[in-house]
């Protein structure tokens, strides 16, 4: 059965460390920002507006509504409203793959340009340094690298 769970000191720390509260945007059916929570940007930048709309389009297309950007994770979910309409909740969290990139760099002896290329790939971009990108592929054989990364992730989170 359900019920409230009183947090112990360790769990409070875990919860606080695990996530910062996400910033919430509510978009109306025309994909305009109707409301936003504290911490949201007062003026929605062009970049943010594009990210919000992209997340909603993912929802509408029925695909995964979680997008990873360079410095944030965007998640979206549809809402039904009292007037019979549709709205969208979009949540933003700050994000950095820095720790994982640093560990991969140490494990595989990546140079700073190669580590940067890896970080750029994770952020969904194209590495500016093509040579670093190519040597990255030579230093981290696919199967070996995947196994290492998966082990790291499994150690870090239950």
């Amino acid at each position: 059965m359900g019920g409230s769970h009183e947090l112990g000191p360790n769990e409070v720390d875990q919860l606080a460390a695990l996530r910062e509260p996400p910033v919430l945007y509510v978009l109306d059916a025309d994909l305009r920002v109707a409301f936003s929570s504290a911490g949201a940007e007062r003026e929605v930048s062009r970049e943010l507006d594009a990210a919000l709309r992209a997340a909603v389009h993912d929802v509408e297309a029925g695909s995964d509504a979680v997008r990873v950007y360079r410095d944030r994770i965007v998640r979206a979910t549809p809402l039904s409203t009292t007037d019979g309409g549709v709205a969208y909740a979009v949540l933003l969290e700050r994000f950095s793959a820095g720790d994982l990139v640093r560990q991969a760099a140490a494990r595989f002896g990546l140079t700073p340009p190669e580590a940067l290329a890896l970080a750029e790939m994770i952020a969904g971009g194209h590495p500016a340094d093509a040579a670093a990108s190519e040597s990255l592929g030579q230093k981290i054989p696919s199967a070996h690298g995947e196994h290492f990364i998966e082990r790291l992730l499994n150690e870090a989170v239950e």
Partner: peptide, 27 residues
Amino acid sequence: ERYAVIIERFAVRARPSAEPGQLSPAP
């Protein structure tokens, strides 16, 4: 005033190191 209730599955970290990909303070 309005209120958003956000519910998501809670995963406990096995050790204090940051979750890969987590945000600086959070993850």
